[in-house]
Amino acid sequence: MEQFPRGRSAIVGAATYGIGEAPGMTSLDLAAKAAMKALGQADIALKDVDALFVCTPNDALSGLSAAEYLGIQPRFTENNRTGGSSFHSHLIVASLMLEAGYCETALIMYGSNQRTGAGGLVSMRLPSPYEKPYKPMTPVSSYALAASRHMYQYGTTREQLAHVAVSARKWANLNPEAFARGELSISDCLNARMVSDPLSVRDCCLVTDGAAAIVMTRSDRAKTLNTTPIYILGAAAATWYSGVDQAQDLTVTAASESARRAFALAGVAPRDIDVVQLYDAFTINTILFLEDLGFCAKGEGGAFVEGGRIAPGGALPVNTNGGGLSCCHPGMYGMFTLVENCVQLRGEGGDRQVSGAELAVCHANGGTLSSQSTVVLGTAATL
C-alpha cells in the first residue's frame, strides 16, 4: 500500500526572482537569487542546507554546479530531469528523506535565462523517430494534436481555449510580478497568429527569464521558525510515455493517475480544494488537467472554463499568478505552481489573494504531456 508522511514535512520558504527579463544573468545566477530569498524567509543559513535539488535547462550536472556555486557541501544532490514536473518529484524525494531523518534542510531551486540568454524557447526534447518524418514543431505540435483530438471527440472549441488564456490574463493583471499584463479578449485570442493548428500564439506560454525556489524541513522544526509553514499533505507522480505518438488516448494524461494517488494520500478530494495551480504551457493543458484531476468530467473541461469560472471571482481560482500563459514561463514552470500556492496559503497574494484558502493543489507537466506530478498543500488548519 502506497504511503506518504502526510503533514510531516513543510515548506518554510518560497520565492521567485527575475521574472520577465534578467539580462546579464545566467540560469544559475537567477536560481541562486531565488534560493537566498527563500532561505531568508525562514531565517535559515545557507550552510544548513544538506540536501540540494536543482534542474536547470542548460546543465545536465546542475546539482554539482549549484552546490559549487553556492559554496555548500550537501549530503545529497538530486538532478532528476522530467521537464516541468521535475520539482514536484524533487519534493516527493525530499519529503521522504526528511521523514527518514536523512537530511534536515532541503533546498529545491530552478532558474532559466532563456529569454535574454537564448532569445527563445529552449526545448530539451527532440521528436521521436516515429514523429520526425512529419517535421513537428516541438513541443507545440504535440499539444496541438491533443487539442484537435479533444475538439473532435468532445466538441471543445477554440473559444473555450480562449477562455483559459483570458482568465489567466485577468489573474496576471492583479499580479505586479507578471510579465504579460493588459487587456486580452476572446476576440484577440481567436484572431491571433496561428502557430500549430488549432493553437494560436495566445494559446501558447510565454518565453521569459525567471527563477523560483522552496525550502523544506520537518514539521516539528518548521513550527520553531519565524515563518508560516505550508504542509505537504500528499504527492504523487506518474509517467505513461515520452512522445505523444505512444499515447493510447490523447485526451487522457497520467495526471489522472498522479492526482488520484495524491488526493488519496492527502485524504482530500477535488471538491475540498480552494485554489489550483496548473502547468499551462498551452491552453489545452488547463482543460485536460481540470478533467484528469477530477474537477470536472472528461470532455466537460471546455464548458467548465467558460463564464469566468476559473478567473478572479470565479468558483475555482486557477493559476492565480497568471500562469505560464501570462505570468512567466522560463523553460520549466513547475516550481512556480509550488511558490504561488504557498503565497496563497500564507495569505500574501495581495489583490489576487483567494479569501480563506486552506487547501491547494499544484500540478506540473513534463515533456509533451509525458510526466505528470501532483502535490496537495495545506495550512496548519488542515493537519
Rank of each mutant, 00 (worst) to 15 (best):
Y154L: 04
F4E: 12
C103V: 15
T320S: 12
H150N: 13
G267Y: 04
S371M: 09
T16L: 07
Q114C: 13
C342S: 09
H90F: 14
S89G: 08
S9H: 03
L290Q: 11
A212D: 01
G18C: 08
A281I: 01
Q160K: 01
A144W: 02
L190N: 01
H363S: 12
T217P: 10
V339C: 04
K47T: 14
L250Q: 08
S62V: 11
A172Q: 03
E104W: 00
D274Q: 07
G243L: 00
A14Q: 06
S141H: 15
T320P: 06
I108A: 04
N321Y: 11
M194D: 04
P176Q: 10
A172T: 10
V215A: 02
H150W: 09
T224P: 01
R169T: 05
V318G: 04
G155S: 09
A211C: 06
G24E: 12
L233M: 13
S141R: 01
G13V: 09
M124H: 12
A281V: 09
F282Q: 05
S128K: 00
S65H: 12
T138Q: 08
L30R: 07
A262M: 10
S185H: 12
Q41R: 09
S89W: 02
L288H: 12
L316P: 02
S123H: 05
E21T: 12
K170F: 00
V122C: 12
P133G: 07
S167L: 10
M332Q: 13
I310H: 00
A238F: 11
R271S: 15
T56I: 15
D292G: 11
L30G: 03
L64Y: 10
N79W: 06
M216P: 06
N365P: 00
V318H: 06
G120N: 14
F263H: 02
K298D: 07
D50H: 03
L107D: 07
N175Y: 03
V49L: 05
A311S: 13
Y333Q: 09
E104S: 15
A255N: 13
E68T: 10
P312A: 12
K223E: 15
D50A: 11
H329I: 03
A162Q: 08
N321E: 10
R309H: 11
L161E: 01
V54L: 06
R75K: 15
T286W: 00
N341Y: 01
L61E: 14
R193T: 15
C55M: 11
A60P: 02
E2F: 06
S167G: 14
G18E: 00
H363K: 13
T374H: 08
F76N: 06
V276Y: 01
Q344C: 09
R75M: 08
T77V: 15
R115A: 15
A15W: 00
T283Q: 05
Q277L: 05
Y154W: 10
P23D: 04
K223S: 14
T374A: 09
T283P: 02
Q344D: 05
A222G: 07
P129Y: 07
L233C: 05
S167I: 02
T368E: 13
R158D: 06
G120I: 04
M335T: 11
L325T: 03
T251D: 04
R261C: 03
A237E: 15
G313W: 03
G210R: 07
F289R: 07
R271I: 09
D249C: 08
T227N: 04
T374F: 05
S326T: 08
G234Y: 02
M194C: 13
D59F: 10
G302E: 04
G322A: 09
C189D: 04
A247N: 08
